[in-house]
């Protein structure tokens, strides 16, 4: 799914969270949004999901996600960084998602099993009572069970251990091949493993948008700890491409 943003701005009171952001993702692009806390990554993601009203233009597959959210959401999968404190049980949430997505529950069960999550055993457990890692696996299973052409993921492996992270990467390769990916992440291994292009946000503005091989990227990677971290992650991405 193509994602276009033109001169998108968003204010929360006196705080300008996004300031004239323009971005164009072709169908199948895999892009990481990186930047310090408060740089506007979450706001940008929410604008793309159509749950924030912004100035400027946001289009998913040529349609305004705020106005045509329902139609577009059926082609979108989202993994938030942290699960909401849902009192609902795992079974209730799973049933709701199957109904809303028109899915078979077996699809969610098999997706969950692929990341070592025993869904039937957790059916009666409230979501808020699950451990951080189990909640994250549940969110991943719910998101990747349905075919999606746009994946939005906010630090999807932040609470996962090494093995679970690898299982997630395998599942991602299997289920999300060809989908557009918008990844918010501070985790270098996620960036290294999942994306081809990096968009750096600072104070609501894009300060860098480049493929990992772009020469101008290398020039900017020598200033400050933040850039050094990013450089390391991108070096990993280049290794992946080479292999």
């Amino acid at each position: 799914m193509r994602v276009e943003l033109k001169e998108v701005s968003k204010r929360f009171g006196s705080v300008r969270a996004l300031d004239g952001v323009s971005l164009d993702l072709a169908s199948g692009d895999r892009v990481a949004l990186v930047g310090p806390n408060g740089s506007g990554k979450s706001t940008l993601v929410r604008a793309v999901m159509g749950i924030l009203r912004c100035e400027g233009m946001v289009r998913l597959a040529g349609e305004d996600p705020f106005r045509h959210r329902t139609r577009l959401a059926s082609r979108l999968a989202y993994v938030p960084q942290t699960a909401p404190r849902l009192g609902a049980t795992v079974g209730e949430v799973t049933r709701a998602v199957t109904a809303l997505r028109g899915l078979d529950e077996a699809e969610i069960r098999s997706t969950a099993a692929a990341i070592d999550l025993d869904l039937p055993a957790l059916r009666r457990r409230p979501v808020r009572a699950l451990s951080g890692g189990t909640k994250q696996k549940l969110l991943i299973a719910l998101a990747l069970a349905a075919p999606a052409s746009l994946l939005i993921m906010d630090e999807p492996t932040a609470s996962l251990d090494h093995e679970a992270r690898n299982a997630f990467f395998r599942l991602f390769d299997e289920r999300a091949a060809g989908a557009t990916l918008l990844l918010c992440s501070h985790r270098l291994d996620e960036v290294r493993r999942l994306v081809d292009r990096v968009v750096v946000l600072e104070e609501g503005r894009i300060v860098l948008d480049a493929p990992v091989t772009a020469p101008e990227l290398a020039e900017r990677l020598n200033a400050g700890a933040w850039w050094r971290d990013l450089r390391d992650s991108l070096a990993g991405a280049e290794e992946r491409r080479a292999s």
């Binding site: 929410r46 999901m49 139609r71 979108l76 989202y78 938030p80 998602v97 809303l100 997505r101 998101a143």
Partner: peptide, 9 residues
């Protein structure tokens, strides 16, 4: 945020 990532109005 989570609910509205699904196709609901």
């Amino acid at each position: 945020e989570l609910l509205f990532s699904h196709p609901i109005t």
